[in-house]
Design a binder for these strands. Structure first.
Lengths: 151, 151
DNA sequence: TTGCGTGCAAAGGTTTTGCATGGCA
DNA sequence: TGCCATGCAAAACCTTTGCACGCAA
């Protein structure tokens, strides 16, 4: 957890995530992309690097589906996304940055009533976005790729 | 998914969940309990049965942490409680099962104002619990059984 | 008897870990 | 030169699946 080195693997992973900032990316996506791009990279490196970026706040980790594994998404500068909540659509993967008064009150309520200090930086509210709610054909397990996949 | 039989395995699992309705029970908890109780039951049966109970609405499945696996909780009547949220303390790991009116309103607010249907089964609110806020002692890993029940 | 439920073991997938090597600063 | 990062493979983990047998109705 001390100084960190800039390696070509880290650069490649961060670039890939930045270019796909409007999607959610799985660890296996990174692995596949690197292999297809001819960039030699072990699986362990991918996981270790993704975890590090999460700690740094550069990317975010989402657990959309318990079976598929975690998704990662670039969020840019760490400070920018610390003040509001995030809604994650489990259908299309869209990430909604939500800062509204109500949720600030929620934070206050949970602290006042339950003594719990909410960390909006780490909290993700999962659900289904408006578009996917409409488009949804009431199918049980809609594949995430079948919906409004932004980009 | 036609007619169903009442077997002693199903009865045992449902009893166990009912007795621990105020906790989060993992599939492995069920397996361990059965083994300790001398009730012979295979892992596959546990998973298959839990899934079936979920479909029937008798129990509810929560995904709190990708590593720990899913949690299950007895809810009794299917329609009863829809707005259970989880607060997870990032310091001690304690999982707080929170169902209060305010959060139900939050769910409604997000739907009304933002068109987003919140999934309380997947959403976990992270932060620091009351005890950890006061005593900054960091325990390693408190299990889910130390579940404060709010309201 | 019928066919759902069960147990066992193996397989499936994602993620982690150990250890020697490689590479940034 | 120090240390961190990497790669490889094995391991760990939760969960699912296949198949023969058991058991409720």
């Amino acid at each position: 957890m001390k100084n960190e080195y800039t390696t070509k693997q880290r650069t490649a992973i961060l670039d890939f995530l930045r270019e796909n900032a409007d999607r959610h990316v799985k660890a296996s996506d990174v692995v596949n992309y690197m292999r297809e791009s001819g960039i030699k990279m072990g699986t362990a490196t991918v996981y270790r690097t993704l975890e590090k970026f999460c700690d740094e706040g550069l990317i975010r980790k989402f657990i959309v589906d318990e079976h598929t594994g975690a998704c990662y998404q670039f969020v840019g500068t760490p400070a920018a996304c610390h003040s509001h909540f995030h809604l994650k659509c489990t259908e299309c993967g869209k990430l909604i940055h939500l800062s509204c008064e109500f949720l600030e009150n929620m934070e206050k309520h949970i602290y006042d009533e339950h003594g719990f200090t909410v960390s909006s930086a780490k909290t993700v509210i999962y659900g289904v976005c408006a578009e996917c709610s409409h488009t949804q054909v009431k199918k049980e397990h809609a594949d995430a790729s079948s919906c409004c996949h932004a980009k």
